[in-house]
Nucleic acid binder design. Sequence first.
DNA 1: GTAACTACTATACTATAGTATAGTGGTATA
DNA 2: TATACCACTATACTATAGTATAGTAGTTAC
Lengths: 120, 120
Amino acid sequence: MVTSKQLQKAHSCAAGFVLAINDTLNVITGKWKLPIIGSLIYGKKRFKELEREIPKITPRMLSKELKDLEMNGIVKRTVYDTTPVTVEYEVTEAGRSLKSVLDKMVEWGLAHRKQVMGKK
Amino acid sequence: MVTSKQLQKAHSCAAGFVLAINDTLNVITGKWKLPIIGSLIYGKKRFKELEREIPKITPRMLSKELKDLEMNGIVKRTVYDTTPVTVEYEVTEAGRSLKSVLDKMVEWGLAHRKQVMGKK
DNA sequence: GTAACTACTATACTATAGTATAGTGGTATA
DNA sequence: TATACCACTATACTATAGTATAGTAGTTAC
């Protein structure tokens, strides 16, 4: 038998899970987050290199998404005092730790793609 | 040394990963998807029960998100030929298989919440 | 007959996400 | 001096996601 206290506990627990999941989702949702992470996984890159490597991205979106990723500790931005300035982006340890999450998502996505109807 | 062929392979591979990850993301993104799944995990529910259980959701959004989830094979809708009709929603096996993905996301979210700045 | 319940749908709106296009300030090269 | 590269920013727009509010068709209870 399920008591109302148990249900309450289950619900507040589920709510906490939802918060934690949303923290994770906020980090990787955004049309260009995964392509950027994917591109930086192979090594440090400069702004223009990313712009050239990621087809169709605009500098505005690249800048915005990099800022989000930096704010969330996924990417580190380093400015070198050269002339002209060089700016390099690289994934952090926290960024690399996303791999286990992404791996699970790849796994599930591949296994269930047939059933999944993309939002056309 | 990294050849251009290897890079090409790595890139097309990464692109495939991005597609698979997006398939997974499409299933769980949407403001009310997780609360709905979370609510149904504890057992079948009727439309009105979900509406009462999920604070602030409107029938329009509940209906839309349930349709998305049904389309993606996460939730099953059953109509019982009673008078008046009874409609029940439940998570499918595919829905339950999301658990391993969600668990990883909870884990990462909890571990990195400090660094993550919610989009205020 | 009227009030209330179920399972929604319709219409109109606001807010957020993403795009298109142009421009800035500094530097280097021809 | 004129052109081009780097690392962006500004402005204005479109598209998608989500909200607010009301209403529908069928049924049951008073």
